[in-house]
Amino acid sequence: MCAFAVLTGVLFNFSIDTTTVRPNEVATGLIWMTLIFGGLLGVGRTFHLESQDGALQGILMSPAPKDAIFLGKLIANFVLLYVVSLLVLGVFGLFFGIDLGRNFGWVVFVLAIGSLGFVAVGTLFAAVAAGTHLRETLLPVLVFPLMVPMVIYGVGAMMPLVSGRPFTEVEGNVRMLGAFALAGVAAGAVLFRYVVED
């Protein structure tokens, strides 16, 4: 995932002529798309270890609550994706010359909320895909449509921030992004047992 993030940043750098477009405006959209594609690589492997020798069945037959299993997987995915998102921010900052300045704290906060929303949806659908033969092929088809609100509000929140605008201007977008993340976590925790139980 880290290698993917860095390489994507490098490729985008060469594919976009920064003399004809404003780097800040392009970079935020690309950062979110890189996170979604990179994140999909990570969440697609959420149940990879458990798929061997029926280990998922083993933990599902234990007294561990299903929502706890989901939240454990979600936390692991979140930590991984958040580290990658900070790396992506650094890479794009370097290649596109983004000056985060005083909004650095708010930008990483927005990325944290976005990462949480993504992994909540991604982890749930990774469980759905793990029960099929298509797995990684099916996952983007299931996840991408649900990422539309995240991209809209994520980009809507981050673009003004990287342009040096105050946080109050993007508060509405951040709230919507937060609501998306919380709804994703709650829905995942509730629905996970129905997804994994036969």
């Binding site: 020798d53 029926g54 280990a55 069945q57 083993g58």
Partner: peptide
């Protein structure tokens, strides 16, 4: 079971 439920 047929499967061991073990992590390889």
């Amino acid at each position: 079971s047929h499967q061991g439920f073990l992590y390889d």
